[in-house]
Computed example of a mutant assay.
Amino acid sequence: MRDKVVVCAYHNVGYRCLEELLRQGADVRLVFSHEDSPGEEIWFQSVRALAARHGIPCLTSSINAPENRAMIAELAPDFLLSFYYRNMISPEVLALAGRGALNMHGSYLPRYRGRVPVNWAVIKGERATGATLHYMVEKPDAGEIVDQQQVEIAFEDTAFDVFNKVTEAAVTVLRRSWPQLVAGTAARIPMDLKAGNYCGGRKPEDGRIDWSLSALEIYNLVRGVTHPYPGAFTTLAGKKLLVWQAFPVEGTGEPGRVLSAQPLLVGTGSGLLELRRLQLEGAAELCAADFVQATPCDGALFT
């Protein structure tokens, strides 16, 4: 008899990993996912639609709800697998998986434990990250590692670019690891938490640009929260100004002061930042040349 599996999944990582499990013939009995948030740009594939196509029941209520915990206990799954599921899963639910509960995390653990690891890795200027399959314990992203795959972060990659790389790495890890988990031969490597770090979630207001930082640090913020994320922003004449694309260049200038309109260069704490795509609150997104034509800003101060 095949091992019974309960899957918690959302977003592209959830979709692709569930798809890979089904491709390998896993006996997925139940899926937990999320309702899409009306305030979020939905650019990713639907786990619920995938489950429906395969006739698998899919619930969007919390897996920790008493009625769901009772349902899982009755099902008595061998494995509980989490792929980009946004809720912490209680220890009581984790204990219901006879052969183990595992999570696919979007970083090369133990680095960037916690929330939005791809965005944080780009914002912090990392040159690599990855995907890690690990056992779940009460503490987040802290259980034994089964397998992981590293990916490169190129200097011009946005968080979206890196997320796509991490998604592919997650599928690669699961493709290797699932047969080993079923066979009972998968690795269980203790995680050295002291060698890593933990990051919390981010809110749209965390995208405010601090012009006293270096051009490189601001550039990393811009590419770490650009489309499809909420974007980095500053203020121009009392209006919110989103910066969707930028690039660091050499030079000096007062932090936040526009030094040139063609190209659009702004001073920072170290170096200059060339702004390439912008969007004034309530207006359309424009390339820098069109923006300065519509909104003269030479000598202006961004705050």
Rank of each mutant, 00 (worst) to 15 (best):
R202F: 15
C58Q: 07
D210I: 06
S214F: 12
G196S: 05
D27I: 04
G231W: 00
E281A: 12
K203W: 15
C17F: 02
C17R: 01
P190M: 10
Q45G: 14
Y198E: 09
M88I: 14
G39M: 15
T226E: 05
V47E: 02
N64P: 07
T167L: 14
E217G: 03
Y229I: 09
Y84N: 07
V31K: 00
A159T: 05
A52H: 11
V93R: 00
A131M: 08
Q279F: 08
G267Y: 00
R202S: 13
W178T: 00
I123Q: 02
F163Y: 14
N119A: 07
L213W: 14
P38W: 07
P190N: 13
S37C: 13
A288F: 03
D206N: 09
E35D: 13
W43V: 10
R113P: 00
N64R: 11
P140R: 07
A261N: 04
A65R: 12
V122A: 02
V146G: 02
L272N: 04
R188D: 06
P296W: 05
D290H: 09
K240Y: 13
G224A: 07
T234E: 06
G125D: 06
A246V: 11
S212V: 12
L30V: 06
K203A: 15
K139M: 11
P38A: 05
P228L: 12
L278W: 02
R29Y: 06
T172Y: 13
V171R: 00
D27A: 09
V93Q: 00
L133W: 01
A186Q: 05
G207S: 08
V222I: 14
A283K: 10
G201A: 12
N119Y: 05
W211H: 04
Y198H: 08
A232H: 08
G224H: 04
N12C: 10
L280D: 09
C287Y: 13
A128T: 13
L21R: 08
Q262P: 10
V137F: 03
P38L: 04
A128C: 12
T252F: 14
W43K: 10
P255Y: 04
F247E: 11
T129P: 03
I153H: 01
A97I: 01
